[in-house]
C-alpha cells in the first residue's frame, strides 16, 4: 500500500533585487482573488518585458508609475539587457542607409516580425532614426562596425567615436579614443 506522507512545500521562488510597490496577492488562498497583470511576481514581469520590442517597453513606461519604475530598473539591469538582446535575435533588423533626391542621408531599420507565430503573415516595420544632429557637427564616416546592437561610427579626421544604440535612440560620443584620429573602424 502506498504511504501517503506529505512532503515539505517547494521553496519560494527567488526574489529579484528591485522592489516596486505593485499590488501583491497574499500567499494564502491567492486563487480566490482575481489576478491582474500587476499581481504577477517580478520574475514573470522580466519574462514578459524581455519579449517586447523597445518601442513597446517605452510605451509601457507611460501606463502607470509602478510600470515606469520597473522598466527604468530593468533597462539598466545587465541581466535583463542580455535577456532582451537574446530574445531580439529572433527579430533581426536590417540597417539601410539611403539618399533622397537632395542627397540627404536617411538611416532606417527594417525589421521583419512574425508576431502571430505563423509563417503566413509577416509584418515589416520600417523605422527611421536621425543622425543629423551629429552630421551637422561632425564629418562622419560610414558605419564602421556593430556588436550586440550597438553601432560604432567614427568621425573623420578627429579622434572621436560615436557609439549609437538605435533601439533606444541613444548616443554616446567618445572623445580621445584610443583608436587615433586617422583610423577608420572596419567591419569585423
Amino acid at each position: 500500500m502506498r504511504a501517503h506522507r506529505s512532503r515539505s512545500p517547494l521553496s519560494a521562488p527567488p526574489t529579484l533585487p528591485w522592489n516596486h510597490p505593485r499590488q501583491r496577492l497574499s500567499q494564502k488562498k491567492y486563487w480566490l482573488v482575481a489576478a491582474t497583470i500587476n499581481s504577477l511576481p517580478d520574475q514573470l514581469w522580466v519574462e514578459i518585458m524581455s519579449r517586447l520590442p523597445v518601442k513597446s517597453l517605452l510605451r509601457c513606461k507611460c501606463v502607470q508609475k509602478p510600470w515606469c519604475r520597473l522598466i527604468d530598473t530593468l533597462i539598466h539591469d545587465r541581466t535583463f539587457v542580455t535577456k532582451h538582446l537574446n530574445s531580439s535575435i529572433d527579430r533581426p533588423s536590417l540597417y539601410i542607409r539611403s539618399y533622397d533626391v537632395s542627397r540627404r542621408v536617411r538611416n532606417s531599420f527594417v525589421t521583419i516580425c512574425n508576431e502571430n507565430g505563423d509563417n503566413a503573415h509577416l509584418d515589416t516595420v520600417i523605422e527611421d532614426f536621425d543622425l543629423s544632429p551629429f552630421r551637422q557637427q561632425y564629418h562622419m564616416s560610414f558605419l564602421g562596425s556593430h556588436c550586440n546592437g550597438i553601432m560604432c561610427i567614427s568621425v573623420l579626421r578627429q579622434n572621436i567615436v560615436l557609439l549609437c544604440n538605435p533601439a533606444l535612440r541613444e548616443f554616446k560620443l567618445i572623445t580621445g579614443s584610443c583608436l587615433g584620429p586617422r583610423r577608420r573602424i572596419d567591419q569585423t
Binding site: T36, I37, N38, I48, S56, C60, C62, V63, Q64, E115
Partner: peptide, 17 residues
C-alpha cells in the same frame, strides 16, 4: 502589449493612470 498604444494597453489590462 506589443504594437499597442499606451491607452490601448491601459484598456486591455483595465489599468488607470
Amino acid at each position: 502589449i506589443r504594437g499597442k498604444k499606451v491607452e490601448e494597453i491601459r484598456e486591455t489590462f483595465k489599468i488607470k493612470s
